[in-house]
């Protein structure tokens, strides 16, 4: 039985990965295509969040994301993940998450006390996609 399940999981993983590997073009400029939705359209949050920019997410991937973060010009600047601390403590892992762009220049990880959408305390993992991204998302 186990011998049958494992290869299926493997195949699913292989199918999922290439989507991200070859399909990042449409994500580089806002708005990204469906199933992404603008976070501020569906949750009571500012359209531009200082430090995180304008966020889009596929609701099916909540809470972890990826959240795609765009600057004021609509340029993809970061990919953000949100992982509840309690989930991590309970052994939940968040694996094989997508990335908005394969170019990553720096990563910030910090605690967040919660906000609409991900209301339990969680970690923000922010992958910046260019050297200047952090400054453009600041405010």
């Amino acid at each position: 039985m186990i011998g049958k399940i494992a290869p299926i999981a493997l195949v699913v993983g292989m199918l999922a990965a290439p989507v991200w590997a070859h399909d990042e073009g449409p994500l580089l400029q806002a708005p990204p295509p469906e199933p992404y939705v603008k976070v501020s359209d569906v949750l009571p949050l500012p359209e531009f969040i200082p430090g995180l920019g304008t966020l889009y997410v596929d609701p099916a991937t909540l809470p972890a994301g990826p959240f795609l973060s765009y600057d004021h010009e609509g340029k993809l600047s970061a990919t953000v993940y949100m992982t509840p601390i309690e989930d991590l403590e309970n052994g939940v892992s968040f694996d094989d998450l997508g990335v908005g762009s394969h170019t990553v220049t720096s990563v910030d990880i910090y605690y967040n006390a919660g906000h609409p959408g991900v209301e339990s305390p969680h970690a923000h993992v922010v992958l910046h996609h260019d050297e200047d991204a952090k400054a453009r998302l600041a405010e």
């Binding site: 200082p50 430090g51 910090y110 605690y111 967040n112 006390a113 919660g114 906000h115 923000h124």
Partner: peptide, 8 residues
């Protein structure tokens, strides 16, 4: 709240 939401 703190700027990056660490506290509120």
């Amino acid at each position: 709240g703190s700027p990056r939401g660490e506290s509120a």
